[in-house]
Design a protein around this nucleic acid. Sequence first.
DNA 1: CTGTGCCCCTTTGTGTACAACGGGGCCTCA
DNA 2: TGAGGCCCCGTTGTACACAAAGGGGCACAG
Lengths: 215, 215
Amino acid sequence: MSEAETRHHQLYDVLRTRICLLDYPPGTKLGEEALAAEFGVSRTPLRRVLARLSDEGLVETRHGVGTLVTDVEPSELAHIYALRMELAELIGRLSPRPVTEDIVASAEDMLADAERLSAAPDPRAFAELNAAFFRLGLRLTGNGPLIEVAERLYLKTARIWLARIGELDLMRECESFEAEIRETLAALEAGDVQAAALVRRAHISMSFSRLRTAA
Amino acid sequence: MSEAETRHHQLYDVLRTRICLLDYPPGTKLGEEALAAEFGVSRTPLRRVLARLSDEGLVETRHGVGTLVTDVEPSELAHIYALRMELAELIGRLSPRPVTEDIVASAEDMLADAERLSAAPDPRAFAELNAAFFRLGLRLTGNGPLIEVAERLYLKTARIWLARIGELDLMRECESFEAEIRETLAALEAGDVQAAALVRRAHISMSFSRLRTAA
DNA sequence: CTGTGCCCCTTTGTGTACAACGGGGCCTCA
DNA sequence: TGAGGCCCCGTTGTACACAAAGGGGCACAG
């Protein structure tokens, strides 16, 4: 990969992470000049990154105003969740990959992390572990386009959930998440990718129910 | 929408259409300077458009070489088709919208077009009608994210199918397409969106089978 | 005091010059 | 004559200067 491409991907990843972990909550203004200065580049390559984030719907650029982090409307959120549920199931059906040792090992590590999290709940650590576990789930399918689509949708909803975590019972969320990892691990140890996918689908559904009830 | 945004969308649409209808077959070099001159703008806004096409995987930009129209590998093509089949069914399940008069009317018009096409087969006219019919299908769901994802995947495969149309029996393809529209129209007249979605899924599957067999 | 309109300043959009990179052709040497 | 390396040219990447647009604040009139 060329140097320019590498830098682009790096900047993109940093900004995307900041948006999804609410370092930049919805409505935040991302000034091109300021960001360019922070990363030591000119506005040109930075604008390339913001354009990509804009195409993906994470930010919105207005001429003469600035680039603002977007919010997600409740109705669209429902649509995304409904779609994510279906895609989660597809991960178990389309080109499932064999469950390797390192996947199981990763899941075991994450279960340990989740147990620590339940003992000492923290929204940000929760969000990070959740993202890591989501990416682990993506490794269960060999269907590249499915992975891209699923990740794209996940990124759009992750921060919304995190934003409303205050309205939810954090302890309850942690326990539910821990249970999800535990059930998933059992499915993976049995080599049953489809079962793992169904566990995921069920928990996405329950998670959205709790979110909707709280709001 | 701002003037800049409008122009961006217009340029994007023109180039995307040219790529998908094989005015620019895979491997074609799209020179920034040349395109900028054609559209009467500088390289800057044009690069914004090419960057978007690049993010979507329709082109690939190499420093010092040029921006090349991409090809799609057979294995990825299979993955996309598998996913498209599932999404087609989801259009009938997630937030189905009531079948309006104008949708039925559009379908009737397209059926007439398809009949004319069967009488005088033409690859390009086929591709255009196919795209129009695809977009009509998207109007059957109210799930916005699902529409975006489905369209994105369609655009990635449409040109590949068109590229190999020479290896297929064009007449047979036309007749199959005409049958698809006829069956869909019957489902729509009955107000049965889910049935229309299943028709679509079946025809995507058969279309890919024929494509695979021919290659 | 309030409402309205204008101006200025901040910020993004565009155009252009130059740097970085890659490939192909040509020249050289064995 | 063939193979290898170097150079030149075309193309994309970056930086910067300027144009365009939007919003907020200030002044003035009622």
